[in-house]
Write a protein that binds this DNA or RNA. Structure first.
Lengths: 346, 346
DNA sequence: TTGAAAGCGCTACCAG
DNA sequence: CTGGTAGCGCTTTCAA
C-alpha cells in the first residue's frame, strides 16, 4: 500500500500539500490538486487509518455496545444496529461492535485505549451497569434508550409516554370507554427500559381520560401467540371495544387472526392501534393504525449528538424524547353498539 | 490518558522496558516488572490503539461485512454476529461492522486504509459481489458461507450436503420410503447460498437411497405459517411418512401444531427431523431430532483461519466444510403401517 | 537484563 | 499558495 510520501513524490509536491489537498483544510492550487489526485488514483492511495488516529485527534470510530441478552427481540434490534451504522457512516464514522460481556468490559477498554471517539449504548436495561461506567470514562457516550438512573447522561428515545397517551386519546376521542393494552412478554418489563413506561403511561392516561383500562401480557419468558390471543379474548369478553398493541409482530398478527376467527371486524366491531412497533403494521392481515418506533429517528439523533460532543458544543446532558407520529390505516372507528351492551345500557 | 512515557518515568525505567513488560516479548526482571505494573495500575495506563496500529503491524480489528438484506432471518443472523464477535475477542480482536452498502464499499475502504487485519464475510449470496472484491484486495478474507464462484477463496460452512444426506439416511434406515422436505421461503433460494445446496442434496440422496421425495417451500417472499402447514399437509396426504424440516423456527412450530391438530403423533404416526436449524429444536412443542447449524462452529473456525492468515502459515484457499452432528430427541421411528396412517389422516 | 533511538504515516503548525 | 518539520505514542532493532 502506497503512502503519502510516494504520492508526494509522484505529484512533485510536499507531503503536507498532499495532506491538505485531501483534507481540504487549506486551499490548494487547482493545477497542483489535479496532479495530486492523479497520483492518488494511480497509486491507489488511501491514508493509513492508524497514522491518522495517532496524528489527528480522531479515530473515526464509534463503539456500539449491545449486551444481546437471550430475550432481545432480534428483528427490532437488527433495525437499530443497521440504522446506527448507516447514520454513523453519513458522518464518516465506522462502528465497532461490543457484544455480550464486551458490552461492558469492552466499553471500558476502548475508552481507555482511545480506539473510539464516542460510544453508543443500545439495548438499555432499567438498571444498566453501563450507566455507572459511562460516568467514569471521559469518552462521550450516548444512550439509545432510557435507564432508570439517567442523571447526567445523554439519552435518546421515542417519547413512549406521549406515544401511549396519544393512542389512548385517539381511542377516547373516537368514543371508546373501555380499552385494553396487550403488552410485551413479562420478562421484558425487567430486562428492557421502555415497556414499563408504556404500561404506566397507559394506566395513567386512561384514568385521566376516564376510560376503563385493562392490561395483559403477550407471554411469560418469551412471546407466546397463545398467551397474546388469550389476553385479547379476555379483554373483549370483559367489554373492551378497542385494543392497544405494544407487542411483537407475531403477537399482533396472532391477535388479528383471533379477531377474524371470532368474526370481529376491524374497525367496525373493534378498534385496534399499535404503539411502538418497528415493523410495518400496514402489512398485517388487517392494516393497523400505528404510532411507530422508528429506529432511524433515534439512531440518527444519537449519532448527531455523539458527533456534536466531539465538535465545539458538547450537548447538554438530559433526555431527548422524540415526538411520536401517528399513521392511520383505518383500524379505528367509534365503538359498535353490541346487543349485550345496548341491553345493559338501558 | 497517561502514556507510556509517564509510566516509564513513574516506574523509573525506559519506555522500551515498559513496552516489553506489557507485551512479554522480552524477559523483564521480576522486580522491574512489579514496579511497572504498579505504575500502570496507578496511572490507569492503556496503550494507545492508534499508536499500536502504526508502530506494530496489527490493528487488532477484523471487519465483519453483512449486507443485511430485507429477507435476512434476524435471529439466525444475530447468532452469527454474536458468535463471530465472541470468537474474535478470544483472539484479542475487535469487530468492525460493515452493513448495508458498506458491506461492499466499506470492505474496499478498510482494506485500502489498513483499518483491519482481516475481513470476515457473512450473509453470503450465491452470486456475491464481495467475491470479486476479495480477490482484488490483499487483506485476508474468510467467507462464512459458500458462494457459487469460490475459486481461490477461503470458505467455512456447515456441510449442508452431508447434513441433508444424513437426515435422509436416518429416515431411510428407519424404514421410511416416502419423505418430504419443507424448505425455506422461495426467495431464500436466490438470495442465500445454502438453501439450494440442501434441496439439491435432498433430492439426490433420496434418489440414491431409493425413497420417494417431495419438496415444498415454507413461504414466498417471506416465511408463512400457512404455506408451511399446507406444504406439510399435502406431503402427508400424498403418503409421506416423514418430514425433513429446513425452515424458520416459526414454520417448524406451525407444522408441529398442524400435526398435533390432526391427531398425528410424533414419531408414532410421523417422523420429523430438522436440518440446519440454529435454534433449540428440543424446545419446540414436540422435541425434534436435529442436525443443527451451529454458528459457533463456523465462526470460530473462520476467526481461526483469519488469525492464521496473519501469522506464519496462510491457510490454503478452499472450502472448510464442518461435519454435521446428529442430536436425537426421539422424533424418529419406523413408519406406521398404511391402514393406520390413512385412518389417522382421515 | 535494560536503554537509546529510529521509525511507523500522518496532521498541523510555522515559515516563506 | 506551498514546503519543512515537529510531534502523535508506540514497537522494535541495535547496543550495552
Amino acid at each position: 500500500m502506497a503512502n503519502i510520501n510516494e504520492v508526494a513524490a509522484a505529484a512533485g509536491v510536499s507531503i503536507s500539500t498532499v495532506s491538505y489537498a485531501l483534507s481540504g483544510k487549506r486551499p490548494v492550487a487547482a493545477d497542483t490538486r489535479r496532479r495530486i489526485e492523479a497520483a492518488v488514483q494511480e497509486l491507489g492511495y488511501s491514508p493509513n487509518a492508524g497514522a491518522r488516529m495517532l496524528a489527528g485527534r480522531r479515530t473515526q470510530i464509534f463503539a456500539l455496545t449491545e449486551p444481546l441478552r437471550k430475550d432481545t427481540h432480534a428483528p427490532t434490534h437488527m433495525a437499530f444496529v443497521l440504522a446506527t451504522a448507516v447514520a454513523a457512516r453519513r458522518h464518516d464514522y465506522d462502528i465497532l461492535l461490543l457484544t455480550d460481556e464486551e458490552a461492558h468490559a469492552g466499553m471500558r477498554r476502548v475508552a481507555a485505549n482511545g480506539l473510539v471517539d464516542a460510544i453508543l449504548v443500545l439495548d438499555v436495561a432499567p438498571e444498566d451497569p453501563r450507566v455507572e461506567l459511562a460516568r467514569q470514562i471521559s469518552t462521550p457516550t450516548v444512550f439509545i434508550g432510557i435507564p432508570n438512573d439517567n442523571d447526567g447522561l445523554v439519552c435518546v428515545d421515542l417519547d413512549f409516554e406521549a406515544a401511549t397517551a396519544k393512542a389512548v386519546d385517539v381511542l377516547a376521542d373516537a368514543g371508546h370507554t373501555s380499552i385494553g393494552l396487550i403488552g410485551q412478554a413479562e420478562t421484558a418489563y425487567e430486562m428492557s427500559n421502555f415497556p414499563p413506561r408504556v404500561r404506566a403511561s397507559f394506566w395513567a392516561h386512561a384514568a385521566e381520560r376516564g376510560v376503563a383500562a385493562a392490561y395483559g401480557t403477550s407471554g411469560g419468558k418469551r412471546v407466546s401467540r397463545t398467551v397474546a390471543r388469550a389476553a385479547a379474548v379476555r379483554m373483549i369478553e370483559d367489554g373492551a371495544t378497542a385494543l392497544v398493541l405494544h407487542c411483537a409482530e407475531e403477537a399482533q398478527a396472532s391477535i388479528l387472526a383471533e379477531l377474524a376467527e371470532r368474526g370481529l371486524r376491524v374497525p367496525d366491531d373493534i378498534s385496534v392501534i399499535s404503539v411502538g412497533a418497528s415493523f410495518d403494521t400496514a402489512a398485517l392481515s388487517t392494516p393497523v393504525d400505528s404510532i411507530p418506533l422508528l429506529p432511524e429517528a433515534s439512531c440518527e439523533l444519537a449519532v448527531e449528538l455523539a458527533v456534536q460532543a466531539l465538535d465545539d458544543a458538547a450537548p447538554e446532558p438530559g433526555l431527548r424524547l422524540i415526538p411520536p407520529t401517528y399513521t392511520p390505516h383505518g383500524s379505528i372507528a367509534p365503538p359498535a353498539v353490541r346487543s349485550e351492551m345496548s341491553a345493559s345500557v338501558r
